[in-house]
Design a protein around this nucleic acid. Structure first.
Lengths: 334, 334
DNA sequence: AAACCTTGTGAAATCGGTTTCACGCAATCC
DNA sequence: GGATTGCGTGAAACCGATTTCACAAGGTTT
């Protein structure tokens, strides 16, 4: 009925014929313990299947072995499989390193909210933030010495540790693919330009143009907000002003599908009249007809990288941001 | 640089002119404290912005305020937005109730694995399991008195506390809709029949048939495994043997899209020749063309319900499993 | 041979709360 | 009016680890 009582240091110490202090030394890798006694302790620990009591350890040592994963639920968390996928990658790697994942889905907005308080008071050993909008809180936490990793590039010149997909390279590759396949007039439907990721994809698009010695026209650039509807509307606007567009790079898959809907509604064919490329290589890209050519990002790897950077920080290793490569997955749409 | 030192009971006790024991009583809602002294303590607590130290509280009280969310990563977690969505619902509700979500993405398979050990030794106050395959572990934990909630129906006659979507009702509603719109021969592409959810959806389909005084033919029942490919293949098999099928209920959206692909490849039109309904009302249902009619389940609500049942158990309230209603979202495909 | 380091060790303090227990005082009982 | 009950309270033990500190034993240095 009740959980079986766990052994404690005092039990181990007694069985191994040493003091509790020595047990602690052995279990924490203090090497100035007599080898034969250490071995004895380890044997007893093994026999008992002993594991440290988390709360007691945390109280005494000040380290909690808990890493917070903070997700701002102002974001459209619920619709997007992205976050869940990243998180599972994070959790797996942390768990392999004896760390636990504390999930906090909440509005991060206020710097003095409960989350802020929680993170500040040493309840966790580190925090991984998703898609940072307000960085005042993060900046403050970092200043207090809390190890932090951000998934998704933070704004410009900050020295946060972050992991991100190579948005620039992905946008560039997509655009180059369109040009290479013969498109003369390649438009872009951007994501939220406010976000760094959105901006980087646009930059990649522009760069590809330049590499072919062309100048990207502002008229070929339509704003979207990552939604299906916005892709549909932006495509309509683009075709209205530039009917001879023959290629589109949409900054995510959903907008790409919206664009395709508009294109087909106007009696044009994909990819023959207009080739379309999306970003994310999500489930919708794989199941749409025509199959959507898309820039794949390895989302699980993103989470794993975030966890690894966190672990490196906890070990006081110097840590560089990490940018993960993308891969263009070619299907029917381009 | 360093986190500011947190106040402790001794500080509060001194400022309020009481003992630490009294501070504890006030903060834990012990009502046999003199009102004016209690008020004084609360005032000091307020002023200092005091929050209890989690580890210390856990060590002393034996309660951790941590709820584990256990996800078996043998499952195709990474592809499916479902789990992430449920989890965010759980986390939000828990957080509103001063509980934290401990995410464990790991292989649950072994009863003696690290997860099992972790859950058994009182490191968490409760555990929420996703989609239970092996229930030996869960059964044992429950017997030890650990509060448990399962999302997704467990196998038959177990008395676990669980939350689930009304799979039966959803399947029934979808099938009835097809029959009502005039379909004479409605087939079903099942999900994994091994899972309870898959079976319940099939039962709902059969029930709808019976309500119309018809007998569901086994020949109209094709097995799938929730993948796009299996939907495609099963539909082909169905049409081969029963060319006059004019309605299909696929047990998830992905298989429904696969079915549509097959139908259209054969020169038939959706919904005019064959009407199709999916299950989940996922993103792909919303963005496919034709738009997919689908049984919506409120996934966030599922998570919230799971959290609520957990909280009820922690309060020692008696708890009934909860089945959430579905809603048929009608689009073009049926 | 005296003075000085090492090295390994255990007793005890500590982390920040919770809980038991005994005591003082007032209200209630016979 | 003395015995009984009950309430509010603080001192102190306790939860299970970590860490400081003092000390004994053995090895070096003059």
């Amino acid at each position: 009925m009740t959980p079986k009582p766990r052994p404690t240091y005092s039990v181990i110490a007694e069985k191994a014929g040493v003091s509790e202090a020595t047990v602690s030394r052995v279990l924490n890798g203090d090497d100035r313990v007599d080898k034969s006694r250490a071995k004895k302790v380890l044997k007893v620990v093994e026999e008992l299947g002993y594991k440290k009591h988390r709360a007691a350890t945390a109280l005494a040592s000040g380290r909690t072995n808990l890493i917070a994963v903070v997700i701002d639920d102002d974001l459209s968390i619920f619709a997007d499989p992205f976050w869940g996928t990243v998180t599972s990658g994070i959790s797996r790697v942390l768990m392999e390193n004896e760390l636990q994942t504390l999930l906090m889905v909440t509005s991060v907005s206020s710097v003095d909210g409960p989350v802020a308080h929680y993170l500040q008071t040493g309840e966790v050993d580190g925090a991984i933030f998703f898609q940072l909008h307000k960085d005042a809180l993060v900046r403050r936490l970092a200043k207090q010495g809390l190890p932090i990793v951000i998934t998704g590039s933070p704004h410009a010149a900050s020295d946060f540790v972050f992991v991100d997909t190579d948005n620039f390279g992905g946008g560039q590759a997509a655009t180059k693919h369109l040009i290479n396949r013969g498109c003369k007039k390649v438009a872009i439907i951007t994501g939220d330009i406010e976000t760094v990721a959105g901006h980087q994809r646009l930059d990649g698009y522009n760069q590809a143009y330049r590499e072919f010695g062309r100048v990207p026209s502002k008229a070929l650039q339509a704003p979207g907000d990552y939604s299906y509807e916005s892709g549909k509307a932006s495509m309509a606007k683009l075709l209205d002003s530039q009917p001879d567009i023959d290629g589109v790079f949409a900054c995510n898959d959903l907008m790409a599908l919206g664009a395709i809907a508009t294109i087909e509604e106007r009696g044009l064919r994909v990819p023959d009249d207009v080739a379309v490329i999306g970003f994310d290589d999500s489930l919708v890209a794989q199941t749409s007809r025509p199959g959507l050519t898309s820039v794949r990002q390895d989302i699980v790897a993103l989470g794993e990288a975030a966890a690894e950077l966190m672990i490196a920080q906890l070990r006081n290793e110097t840590v560089e941001p990490r940018i993960l490569p993308t891969e263009l997955v070619i299907r029917e749409s381009a």
